[in-house]
């Protein structure tokens, strides 16, 4: 257990050491940002929109009991910006991106591609790990902002169809309910989520056991571990941000 933890810390500290040492793999970082970000857009758009719609619909009856359906936009904004947006994005990314990173690096490990990179005079840790972790840390916060936007649109359509709330009044309610602290906290939290997803995927792939079974296990462990850690981080961030409000 302690040996495994020491191994994880050694992997993370190697990341920070390699991060600041040249050469910098800018081209690979941009390629990975495209892979992580652009290729997740359709899935993120769909889940974000549905989350906004469903959350609004499910919240309405409870508010209606107190005759407070006019508070729906505020409730939607707070829930989506503070929790649902970052969490839904991180969970989708853990499933899609984390598993893909774990499987890709695991497969490269099994088929000696990482060794081949090393004998080609390329630092495989920098090329594969640093670029992917940076890409997830950069892209997942951007995807989170996009998810929040799409979910708020989903919420608006639901409110507009049921309560005939205008777009202007919806926007005013939304921005009245959230503060800069909320947006800053969500962005910061998303960077941590992105870092976790990238790091876990790379660690599991880089340390996968040989054979095709090892690749499957690496992909699976990347998803399960990063999802678990995302929930733990969500809980911790709730405690930290609450102390600032």
């Amino acid at each position: 257990m302690f040996l495994a933890l020491a191994d994880v810390f050694a992997f993370i500290s190697r990341f920070f050491r390699e991060l600041f040492l040249p050469p910098y793999e800018f081209k690979e970082i941009i390629r990975q940002c495209y892979e992580v970000g652009f290729r997740s857009l359709l899935l993120i758009s769909t889940t974000g929109f549905i989350t906004g719609m469903v959350f609004t619909n499910q919240s309405r009856p409870s508010l209606a009991e107190f005759g407070a359906t006019s508070w729906l936009p505020s409730l939607i904004a707070i829930a989506i910006v503070r929790a649902l947006g970052p969490l839904v994005t991180a969970l989708i990314a853990a499933g899609k991106v984390g598993s893909s990173i774990g499987a890709e690096i695991g497969s490269m490990n099994v088929t000696e591609q990482i060794d081949a990179m090393e004998v080609s005079g390329t630092n495989p840790f920098k090329f594969l790990v640093v670029s992917r972790v940076l890409a997830t840390s950069i892209t997942i916060p951007i995807l989170t902002m996009y998810t929040i936007f799409v979910a708020l649109i989903g919420g608006f359509l639901n409110v507009n169809m049921t309560e005939q709330t205008s777009f202007t009044s919806y926007i005013q309610e939304v921005f009245g309910a959230i503060s800069y602290v909320d947006i800053f906290a969500s962005s910061l939290k998303s960077i941590v989520f992105g870092f976790t997803i990238g790091m876990v995927g790379c660690y599991k792939g880089y340390n996968s056991s040989k054979g095709t079974e090892g690749v499957g296990k690496a992909a699976n462990a990347a998803v399960v571990t990063s999802m678990f850690l995302v929930f733990i981080e969500e809980l911790l961030s709730l405690q930290i941000v609450s102390s600032f409000r």
Binding site: E104, S107, M108, T111, E112, Q113, D115, A116, M117, V119
Partner: peptide, 13 residues
């Protein structure tokens, strides 16, 4: 030093 791997180790991507 050139190293030809048993599995060829071509980069799949």
């Amino acid at each position: 030093v050139g190293f030809s791997f048993q599995s060829s180790a071509l980069y799949d991507s």
